[in-house]
Each structure stands twice: as C-alpha cells, then as structure tokens.
C-alpha cells in the first residue's frame, strides 16, 4: 500500500533571542491510508511542532523547515501559503488538545461549522448548514439541531471536541492530525472520543496521526508508534512490537511508568530520572544519555544513528540490539 504521508528527515528550527533551536531534528515516519500512527514522548519533545510543521502552521517569520513532507506525491514544504491553504482543512485536518478555546466564543457552533465547510466547497449556505447538522449527528452529539444554534460556552468539553471532530471531517480529509485530542477530557469522555475517531476513520477512510503522551491511549487506538525524545525519533515500531519488546531504554522507561501497562501494579511506578535537557544545550552523543540507566561511555561520543532492528522496527541506541534480545526476560527498566 502506498503511503499517504511520508515525512522524511524533517527538521524544524526557530530563531529565538538566545539563538537558533531545532525543535524537530531529522524526524522520519509514514502514515498509510486507514492507519493510525501515534507520536509519543514527554512534554516538550517536539510532538506538536512536528504536527504543525506538516501543515506549516508555525510563524513563518521565525521558523525554518527542511527535509520533506510528502503527501499525495508532492512535497508540502515546497508549497507556498496559498497552496497550503487548499491543503489545510481540506485534505489534511487537525484537531487540538484544548477544546475549550479551539472554538471562537462569539459565534454559534452552526456558524463555525458552516463557515468551515464553505471555506473549501462551492455549495449554498443552506446546504452547508444541513451538512453541518448531519456531521454533528454523526459525532453523536445529542440534539444536533439545537447545538447548531448554541455558543461554545454552552457545550461541555467532550461535546466541543465532537464539534471540532465534525469540523475536521467536514471536507472529507485524507489525513487527520489529532494533537492530544483527549488530554483535557475525563477518562469516560476520552474513551468515547477515541471510539468515535476510530469509527469515523473507518467511515471516511482517513489516515490518522495521533499525538499523545499517554501510552494507554496508544495501546487503544494506534497501529504503529513513533517515540520522540528531544526532537528526535528514538524508536518506531508496530504497536505490538513496541509493547512486547521495546528496544530503546527511553521507550522502556515510558512503558514502565505507565499505569495499567506496567507488569506488576503493586510496585511503585518507576519514573525516568532527571528531566529533558533544553533545546539550547543538546548533548553531542545520545540525547538520552544523562537519564539512561544503560549508558556506556561511548554513548556520549557522537550522535547515535537510527538502527533498523527488524522490518518496521528501528531504534536509536547503540545497545538496542542487545537489549532487544534480552527484553523478553527483562522487566522494563534496570534498577
């Protein structure tokens, strides 16, 4: 199957007052039609910047992109603003973490949905409105007719996220980017929204790039997973491979510190020691070295390459082959 999206060696840098920082450093991954690919990692590792780079949503004055974002046979990074506008919301849509502020407070739900539809399609206002109502109905909001006339503040967080999903799907996109769409919601609402996303993905046959820091969510909906650390992809694998035999110490740390997934719930969850270094002093060698319990002196010498371990599984760690072999017996993190 040909890929829908191919991100090749994506590098996104910002000019800041303290010099240039590279928030995404050589990320590569793919999304096939109908596939859900997760991007996971701790806060600040560059997940959102990766998503925003695909759509070029970052401030053009201070952002530099390099690499390729191949979509539909073309490299989106060569597109100008006008060409990108025809992609955004039309062929690639995005939903955001914060459903509270993702809708304009001064317009009704119906107006905003209709406006989103009319932005890309030449149909009458009446038709756009009735399509908007249908979409709302599909997302399972009770009384869609009434919701159309309501303002965002009259809806709950979960309902607003459903509205955002309806809006994102309004132009039948090929790819949906979801940036932590359930983080702000309670657990029950979260699983309802996830279920809805999967149902709609099948109906619309879209690929999904799903950003989260919650491995529990990844286990629930993703087919493949890309793990990021400090701007780099450190491991990418099929979801089963990732959970059964994680190769990178960082992935193991994440898994071990996730409730429900950690092997023995009675043990205190280990946390990965230390914090993520800032983008202003990125280590020369392995970026995870300071926090890694498997660290060797040679880890710090030079940048580590992403190594292919098996078909569709790669890891950025000089010890990963060894660890990968051991992982069946290891219980996660070295203590």
């Amino acid at each position: 199957m040909t890929n829908l999206l191919e991100v090749v060696d994506l590098r996104t840098s910002f000019d800041t007052e303290r010099g240039t920082v590279t928030a995404v450093d050589g990320a590569s991954f793919t999304v096939a039609p109908g596939e859900v690919v997760g991007i996971v990692g701790e806060s600040g590792c560059g997940k959102s910047v990766t998503a925003e780079s695909i759509l070029q949503l970052l401030d053009p004055a201070s952002t530099t992109y390099s690499g390729q974002v191949r979509f539909g046979g073309e490299d989106l990074l060569t597109f100008g603003e006008t060409a990108m506008r025809r992609i955004r919301g039309n062929r690639i849509s995005m939903i955001f973490q914060d459903p509270m502020s993702a809708l304009n407070p001064v317009f009704t739900i119906g107006d905003q949905l209709t406006e989103a539809i009319l932005a890309h399609r030449r149909i009458g206002k009446q038709r756009a409105r009735s399509e908007a109502t249908e979409l709302l109905e599909k997302t399972g909001i009770p009384e869609p007719q009434r919701r159309m006339r309501q303002y965002p503040h009259q809806l709950s967080g979960g309902q607003r996220q459903r509205v955002m999903i309806a809006m994102a799907l309004s132009c039948d996109p090929e790819l949906l980017i979801a940036d932590e769409p359930t983080t702000a919601l309670d657990v029950t609402t979260q699983s309802q929204i996830l279920k809805l996303l999967i149902e709609l993905k099948d109906e619309f046959d879209a690929g999904i790039l799903f950003i989260t820091h919650d491995l529990g969510v990844v286990a629930e909906i993703c087919d493949r997973v890309v793990v990021m650390y400090l701007g780099e992809v450190v491991e990418s694998a099929n979801v089963h491979t990732l959970f059964d035999s994680p190769a990178h110490p960082y992935t193991r740390g994440l898994l071990a510190s996730t409730p429900d997934i950690a092997s023995d719930p009675s043990i205190d969850l280990p946390i990965i020691p230390g914090t993520v270094p800032t983008l202003h002093n990125v280590p020369v060698g392995c970026r995870f070295a300071d926090r890694c319990s498997f660290v060797l002196p040679e880890c710090r010498d030079r940048p580590i390459d992403l190594e292919v371990l098996s078909d569709g599984h790669s890891s950025r760690c000089i010890r990963s082959v060894k660890l990968f072999e051991d992982s069946a017996m290891s219980d996660g993190v070295a203590r």
Partner: peptide
Amino acid sequence: QTYVEALRSQGASLFRILWIN
C-alpha cells in the same frame, strides 16, 4: 487563542481570520 490556530489549520485566509473571527 487556540481557535485562531484551529482556523489556520482549516485553511482560513488571513482576511477571514482577522475580520470575521
């Protein structure tokens, strides 16, 4: 506000963002 980024992600033009929203 996130809604401005959301609008951009929907392909809204500068005019639509500034004057309508």
